[in-house]
Amino acid sequence: MSGPANEDSGAAGTDVEHLAAVLARRRRELTGGRATIGASSVVHAVEETVWAGVRVPAVLCRAAADPLRLHPAENPVTCRRCLKRASGGRSARVPRGQTELDV
């Protein structure tokens, strides 16, 4: 059976393969472990995650879901949320009046 549905499924397969190749290249570009999002000067920590069945780079703080918005950075991580998550989520200071729990 031929027709528009079959043609669309072939094009969709090509689009998915292209996207997977672009995401793999982006993952290689971000192997330094640091990235900025868009034109921002804030530097984020980068880790890998799985997105639509493909391993992709992601900022640790999850400030951007789109790995195509990430750009390699050479400077140290400046995102406070990334730094906190990288340290296991423990803050050096406990808010006044609260007791630190060992979990």
Rank of each mutant, 00 (worst) to 15 (best):
L23R: 08
A24H: 14
A24D: 14
R25G: 11
R26N: 12
R26Q: 14
R27D: 13
R27H: 10
R28I: 00
E29N: 09
E29Q: 12
E29M: 10
L30Q: 04
L30K: 05
T31L: 14
T31N: 09
G32S: 03
G32P: 04
G33T: 05
G33H: 02
T36E: 00
T36G: 04
I37Q: 11
G38I: 00
A39C: 02
A39S: 03
S41A: 15
V42G: 01
V42I: 11
V42Q: 11
V42T: 03
V43W: 06
V43G: 08
V43C: 06
H44N: 05
A45W: 01
A45F: 01
A45D: 02
A45Q: 09
W51F: 15
W51D: 15
A52R: 15
A52D: 15
G53P: 06
V54P: 06
V54H: 11
R55M: 15
V56I: 06
P57V: 03
P57L: 10
A58Q: 10
A58T: 10
V59L: 12
V59P: 11
V59W: 08
V59R: 12
V59E: 11
L60E: 09
L60P: 04
C61M: 02
A63T: 06
A64R: 07
D66P: 01
D66M: 01
P67Y: 05
P67I: 07
P67W: 11
L68T: 12
